[in-house]
Each structure stands twice: as C-alpha cells, then as structure tokens.
Computed example of a mutant assay.
Amino acid sequence: MFRRSQLDSPQAIRRSAMDLLARREHSYAEMLRKLKQRGATSEQAEIELDRLQDDGLLSDERFCEAYVHARSQRGYGPQRLREELRQRGVAASLIEQVLGDACWDWPARAQETFNKRFPEGKASDPKDRAKQLRFMLYRGFGSEF
C-alpha cells in the first residue's frame, strides 16, 4: 500500500494516475477514488485528473466503450452493464449512448449467451424454464431471448 506522503505533489499524483491507466482504462470517478485511497487530497487529484482529460489520457467515453466491449464478450447484457457502469461513476447519458450503439446487437448476444449456457435449447418444464429465465436476467438480458 502507498504511504500517505507519496502523493503529496502534483507530479506524484500524475505518476500514480498514469500507472493505473497503463494497466486499463478507468473512469474519472474510479481514478479519483483510487488516488484518494493512495493519499491524495480531493482538490489535488481533481486538478491532475482534469489535466489528464485535457491531454486525452483519461476518458469516461473510452472507458465505457472498453468496459462494454469486454463484459459483453463475456456474456453480460445491457441491463447489468448499465448498473455496473453507474456504480463506477459514469454519467447516465454516456451509458445510454454507448449501450444504444447499433454495433452491440443485444438480441444476438443474448441468444449466444443462452445457447452457450443451455445448448439443449429452451426448456419445456416450467421449473427449468424459470431457471433459464433467472440466469438470463442475472446476466442482464430481458426475457425476450
């Protein structure tokens, strides 16, 4: 864990933020939380994060697109992704913009996820059908699969 005194200068805060961004994209809110955990003050961290945004190194839009791409590849649907992104501090309008992009083809992804989990197809037994529906709802897809 970082000692509190490590992030007492703008250079140290920027270096820590760049280290985090080198691993993966982060949202502004995630970065702020992580920098504060490492000992930066809110004001200093916000100043450096604003600079990173101005330099094009930190982008909520880029984070949102990368997150949706990665999680949708693992079989998660728009409802679950919407909630996960909201918890990560992404603006609702940006979430809707990214999830609404036509390139995602959510019905096809829902069918793919369903077929992977249930290769035998839709169950005829109501109890098994309810199990399938719960799985799809947990994954963030509606009941329209």
Rank of each mutant, 00 (worst) to 15 (best):
R51K: 13
A66V: 05
P107L: 13
R117I: 13
Y76P: 04
R74L: 15
P10L: 06
K131Y: 10
A17M: 06
F145H: 10
Q37T: 03
C103M: 09
R80A: 11
D125H: 03
S72R: 11
E96M: 13
F63C: 03
L58V: 06
S59Y: 07
R134K: 15
G100D: 10
L35E: 03
R62N: 15
A29L: 00
R3I: 11
D60N: 15
C103P: 00
A66K: 04
Q6A: 14
R129V: 10
A130K: 14
L57Y: 14
E43G: 05
Q73K: 08
R117H: 11
L99H: 07
L94C: 04
D128V: 11
F135E: 04
D54F: 14
R15M: 10
L35Y: 03
S16L: 01
L35C: 05
K116E: 09
S42N: 08
C103G: 01
L20G: 15
R88T: 12
G89A: 05
R24W: 12
L35Q: 05
L58S: 02
R117V: 13
H69W: 07
Q73W: 00
R74N: 10
E96P: 00
S72I: 06
G140Q: 07
R86T: 10
F145C: 09
A12K: 04
Y28R: 07
F63K: 07
E144G: 05
A92W: 14
A108Q: 06
A70F: 00
R86D: 05
W106R: 03
E30M: 09
E65C: 02
T41I: 04
A17Y: 04
V98I: 07
R15Q: 14
A91K: 13
R71P: 00
Q132Y: 13
H69C: 03
R74M: 13
C64M: 08
C64H: 07
K34E: 12
F63Q: 07
E46H: 04
L85N: 06
K127F: 07
L94W: 01
D101K: 09
A22R: 15
H69G: 00
P126T: 04
I47L: 11
G100V: 04
G100E: 03
S27W: 09
Q6V: 13
P119W: 04
D8I: 10
R15S: 07
R33Y: 08
R62T: 15
E120C: 06
R117W: 08
E120D: 14
C64N: 01
A92V: 12
F114T: 11
E30S: 11
Y28D: 04
K122C: 05
S42Y: 07
S9L: 12
G89W: 00
N115Q: 14
E144L: 10
I47S: 09
Q44W: 07
A29E: 14
